[in-house]
Write a protein that binds this DNA or RNA. Structure first.
Length: 285
DNA sequence: CGACTTTGACCAGCGC
DNA sequence: GCGCTGGTCAAAGTCG
């Protein structure tokens, strides 16, 4: 229902204000310009919510980010069948009911085995982005399937759960609106993509995005080492040249010129357009 | 018909 | 132990 409309909605370009990352031993927050590699730029040049004081990200609904839950980690789609036990083969004569029971049992055992008390799973890296956007689900170059939605305590806005549709890719993301500023969408990524971005442009060709929709300051600056380098693993590689003449000021009025200053090939309002290609270093080094 | 969303049910963790 | 909450599952519905 309304799929088309929703897709249309996602065309609207977001304004990334900043975010939070949680990589176990690395935690912190970042502003948009930090993301772009310009920590010295004030966030204020972007569309920040006017009077509402920017709450400390660490205390935002993003708190859910810090309450890393390891209990619901990727139970791989086929995990239950993978874990077929050896004694199963020893019961070739099981009735259908017994088989079902057996399957159920195995499922349970598998689950328990994967989350035995005291046995903490390695925490999936998580990164949360705060994005000023009218739409909840932002295009980020990957294909996602929604698998759940929950009402969040103390929030009038529901939280949506998405999984990457790629086979064997267990990346998930949660999308919710900030309680403190409903115009801000909080997107939390969990896990790392095991595949390149499909980045299939809608309509078979790169959507020609209007400058208003996709101002070119989303283009990436030159590589620059930052503590957020590991963020790249969440995003498809999209290094591209940047023309700093087009980094807009607060009063920047987009023109047609803005739309063609760079040789962008994936200008689809994707999250990868928001995150520069500077974060190319792997976390594990 | 396949891909996707919606939504109620279910389950586990956690605090009391 | 119980209730609350977050996260996931899966059937049903929708759409192209």
């Amino acid at each position: 229902m309304m799929k088309t409309e929703k897709r249309e909605d996602r065309e609207i370009s977001p304004f990334l204000n900043g975010g939070i990352f949680d990589y176990g031993d690395q935690r912190g927050s970042f502003g948009f310009m930090e993301l772009l590699g310009f920590p010295e730029f004030p966030q204020s040049i972007f569309e920040l919510p006017p009077p509402t004081p920017q709450p400390d990200p660490a205390s935002l609904p993003l708190d859910s980010t810090s309450e890393i839950t390891t209990a619901n980690l990727p139970t791989t789609p086929n995990s239950s069948s993978i874990s077929s036990s050896s004694d199963e083969a020893a019961k070739p004569e099981a009735t259908a009911a017994e088989e079902e029971a057996e399957i159920e049992k195995e499922k349970k055992q598998t689950k328990e085995a994967t989350k035995k008390k005291g046995q903490k799973r390695p925490r999936e890296p998580r990164v949360a982005f705060m994005t000023k956007s009218e739409v909840d689900h932002l295009e980020d170059g990957y294909r996602w399937r929604k698998y759940g939605q929950k009402a969040v305590k103390n929030s009038p806005f529901p939280r949506s759960y998405y999984r990457c549709t790629a086979i064997a890719c267990g990346v998930k993301k949660r999308v919710e609106r900030s309680v403190t500023d409903p115009s801000v969408v909080v997107t939390t990524y969990e896990g790392q993509h095991t595949h390149p971005s499909p980045v299939v442009p809608r309509g078979g060709q790169m959507a020609a995005r209007s400058p208003q929709q996709m101002p070119d300051f989303f283009a990436a600056p030159p590589p620059r080492p930052t503590q957020f380098s590991f963020l790249s693993s969440y995003l498809p590689p999209a290094p591209r040249p940047v023309d700093f003449r087009h980094v807009p000021s607060a009063n920047h009025v987009p023109t047609a010129e803005d739309g063609r200053c760079c040789d962008r090939t994936t200008s689809d309002g994707l999250l990868q357009d928001l995150i520069p290609g500077l974060m190319v270093m792997k976390k594990e080094d």
